[in-house]
Design a protein around this nucleic acid. Sequence first.
DNA 1: CTTAATTCCTACTGGAATACTAGGAATTAT
DNA 2: ATAATTCCTAGTATTCCAGTAGGAATTAAG
Lengths: 135, 135
Amino acid sequence: MIKMKLSTKTRYATRALLMISTSSNPIAIKDIALDQDISARYLENIFSKLKASKLITSSIGNNGGYILAKNPSEISIYDITLAVDGPLQLANIQPNNHHEQYLNIKIYQPIEILLKEYLKSIDLTTIEDADLESI
Amino acid sequence: MIKMKLSTKTRYATRALLMISTSSNPIAIKDIALDQDISARYLENIFSKLKASKLITSSIGNNGGYILAKNPSEISIYDITLAVDGPLQLANIQPNNHHEQYLNIKIYQPIEILLKEYLKSIDLTTIEDADLESI
DNA sequence: CTTAATTCCTACTGGAATACTAGGAATTAT
DNA sequence: ATAATTCCTAGTATTCCAGTAGGAATTAAG
């Protein structure tokens, strides 16, 4: 199978961000983990990366938690996956022969562009607005 | 990093198919492995899948080998990756909650469609025709 | 009819990546 | 002071995939 499912980190992060995007008060990891049925310890790892990428800010201590650092419309799936999983990389950096170079140019690079553009085009509000019931 | 690089199986298979597509006589795995600097044992695995998916046919025994079962123009990258890696699967089959369902509908399914169409649009002749020197 | 070359079948191994866990320090509202 | 939280560093477990291995079945050629 083509390995292109968004990672668990990205999926958890997206769901967590959707959750905190609706609140103006800090939300603690514990509460998100409980609500989403995700390991709190694992979410900690993820949130530290989201914070490092400045998608969220934190308040430490009692009653602390996390809030978005930007408007939901300014956070794309691409931003999220970049933050938690690092850059998307498809092509062979060092093609060993002509065939590999063909594949790079004809397949990897176009897909990379296609996918990046698509992931950038979806932000947290896009997802929020989806009307499930109408489908 | 998003895991969406075509697998080694798909890349090897593509290169191998490109090689045998230029010959009307059966070509042995050994020769392909030598030419492409790929493990012959590993190529065996890959070729058994390509054969099971009817992309190639084989002749057993001395002087045996493989030939394409179709015209090169009828073999797409999608066919190849489907044969060796199984179906592309992005979405959660069983979304556990609304957020997961949102993600499926808004992200996974569209990407899946986008990618499938693209991979189907590229066949062995498309790649062969690529003019590297002009880039 | 023997031999060498090949595909075919089933299973195992090793390593890398990723999901997940753990302990405890630092911080802060109450 | 205390309890609740983030923060930091490290570890473990699991899964996936590339690659290996042995030997049986088949067949062209001499």
